[in-house]
Design a protein around this nucleic acid. Sequence first.
DNA 1: TATGAATGAGTGTTCATTCAT
DNA 2: CATGAATGAACACTCATTCAT
Lengths: 214, 214, 214, 214
Amino acid sequence: MSAIRRLGRPPASSGVQTEARIIEAARRCFADLGYAATTNRAIAEDAGITTGAIYHYFDSKQALFERVFTQVEELVSERLSAAWRGAGDEFAHRMRAVLEASVVLNRDDASLARFLVTVPTECRRRPELAPLLGLLNGYQERVFGPVVDDGIARGELPADVARSTLLNVIGVVLVGLADVSANFSSPEQHAANADVVGRLFEGTLIPAPVSRVS
Amino acid sequence: MSAIRRLGRPPASSGVQTEARIIEAARRCFADLGYAATTNRAIAEDAGITTGAIYHYFDSKQALFERVFTQVEELVSERLSAAWRGAGDEFAHRMRAVLEASVVLNRDDASLARFLVTVPTECRRRPELAPLLGLLNGYQERVFGPVVDDGIARGELPADVARSTLLNVIGVVLVGLADVSANFSSPEQHAANADVVGRLFEGTLIPAPVSRVS
Amino acid sequence: MSAIRRLGRPPASSGVQTEARIIEAARRCFADLGYAATTNRAIAEDAGITTGAIYHYFDSKQALFERVFTQVEELVSERLSAAWRGAGDEFAHRMRAVLEASVVLNRDDASLARFLVTVPTECRRRPELAPLLGLLNGYQERVFGPVVDDGIARGELPADVARSTLLNVIGVVLVGLADVSANFSSPEQHAANADVVGRLFEGTLIPAPVSRVS
Amino acid sequence: MSAIRRLGRPPASSGVQTEARIIEAARRCFADLGYAATTNRAIAEDAGITTGAIYHYFDSKQALFERVFTQVEELVSERLSAAWRGAGDEFAHRMRAVLEASVVLNRDDASLARFLVTVPTECRRRPELAPLLGLLNGYQERVFGPVVDDGIARGELPADVARSTLLNVIGVVLVGLADVSANFSSPEQHAANADVVGRLFEGTLIPAPVSRVS
DNA sequence: TATGAATGAGTGTTCATTCAT
DNA sequence: CATGAATGAACACTCATTCAT
């Protein structure tokens, strides 16, 4: 089309690279500033382009958010799934492995957890993002469903508690850890917090009351 | 229902009442939509006034947010403090009382917890709100500091875990519960979740396995 | 009407005093900030009342401005008229007296001149104030008309210059002096400036070129 | 005439041209309405764009004002400097040349003088504009400093008057002329006024009376 | 007489989005 | 592929004005 080829620009696959840079920049911005406060301009500057270019790759800010979400969700769920799969059959061991994996994830790229933690809130706040909530529920089930099922089957988890509640509680501690970590704690503190939560699941944090009677 | 208001001072209106209505409306909006997405107009409509009237009572959106914060923080910390103070000396009992109080609070007015949970995130996102973070830290210490200290003194909490980490973990579960409740669960589910977390602190969730016997 | 009379308030003629305070406050504000940037609130605070009270005495901001104008215009024109009337018949002497009076006026209450100088500009800017321009023209004619007429009659002012132009030029130097004084100069500098202008009218600033030939 | 503009970049539009149009429109509006009463909307309409577009070229209304100022100040000071430089060495001739140049400037684009005259007042009124006052002082010195110095050196200006006062007085008559012209006079009247002021500086307005002979 | 609650129109400014280049 | 000019709707906030008290 254009006879003169501009020099200095990598001829191959620059589009793919640009798209990836936009996604990363968007993840950081959404994680740091939230959906409402993240401007296309902030994303563009972080990615080293101009706002118009975003629209070559994404239809809208919302579409970009959704793309970031699916990418983060895949990565995190794979990591956490892999973690407990490599930790034997015992429930407490698996939980500990998951907690440790979440600490590592958080240490390597804090924006992953920060982003993921705020997704539910953003979904509640912006109705147009609500469909993502369904994906998040599926994620919880997919990643931790087998852990809970095995725990119940093995008698490690009490039978008088609803399965969904057990799933929920795993979410509670992971969300709580990530949230506290994002806002208050250093990575070291995050690790310490995760360790104590692991001990909660092992039942070793608080000495069983029986011993006090004797 | 809502007749068109005329100019001038409306009959039978007290400034104190209006101010209270604005604060309540703002709490709901901030909790539901976040700081950035909450518009003065949304607050005004919720409070049954026009946007200009807000500025008779508050200097800015930020000042209004701060006012909501201090009010919520006071109310919640009083309730939670009262809860464990009326629950004997045992750590696990106190935690259970706190968890139950948080369930009640959440059931009575979900916007209280929703608002409070998002404060740290908002503070990180908007530098001008950062000073509130200091107040939140003080709150954690004020409300739960004695609980942790007594737990350590009575030997119910392990001595090999830093006091600050124990405090943090209490925050983790409360934040996690509120967050999950705000985004996923019904009040009933919230109560069930809190109950399971209480059992975690009692060490009774997971039947101590073989290893503890030996 | 109300049986109980509030104490501490001067029972007599407080209304008149309040009105005067409002007018003074408005003059200062209009002079300092201009019509557009002067808020009712600024005036009210300067006068020690609330904005609502202004509307007991004046129908609108515009009416208040007009009232300030007529008051200032009367005071200044009386002072300047009196000045040249007490300075003999010679044109240059009369001009000098007028200049000196303007210096004194400016020293005693700078807001008088500042206000008056900006009136024409405000009138051009806000069409609703335009009628005041007519009054200002009448003022020029009333105060300086006789001075110019006598100057022409006495042969002190050249016959080949239109009377209106001579009137205009008196306005030029007075406006110029006030403007420069308002924005740049100290009272002392204002006096010095006025003195030099006086010498211009006496023809003694620049040595007549004749002398240089000889 | 003004068709409804569509979204996106308008065809055949150069940013430089638009920026220039905005500056011109702003100069007219600021000159006519003053800083406070000039709305972005007025500027935008005058420039044939929408208000948002202004912010592609200027950070704020204030920045736009400053830009207009520097442009006008440069243009006017160059014109007036050139005028007296081409008028020989005699002080009165130079002043006359300056006055005539100011008449021409005013006739060609009245908004130049109108804008410039109101700058000091605006600077006093809005503290954020105050820095411009310093530039204006420099301008007076730069343009008229040599004129005064030469006048003193050549004995045309009296040695008993402070140099700064002489500079001030030049400002007084120019400001006064522009002000009166802006508010009262036609271009013809302006020229006549300037002519009379010129004669003041030549000492020929008032026929030196008896006293000068003796 | 004076206050202070409230309105409604307006301000400067931001921003997601569109589109010619 | 990417830029940057431009829009239009929104935003937080201000202000002259009205009116019950």
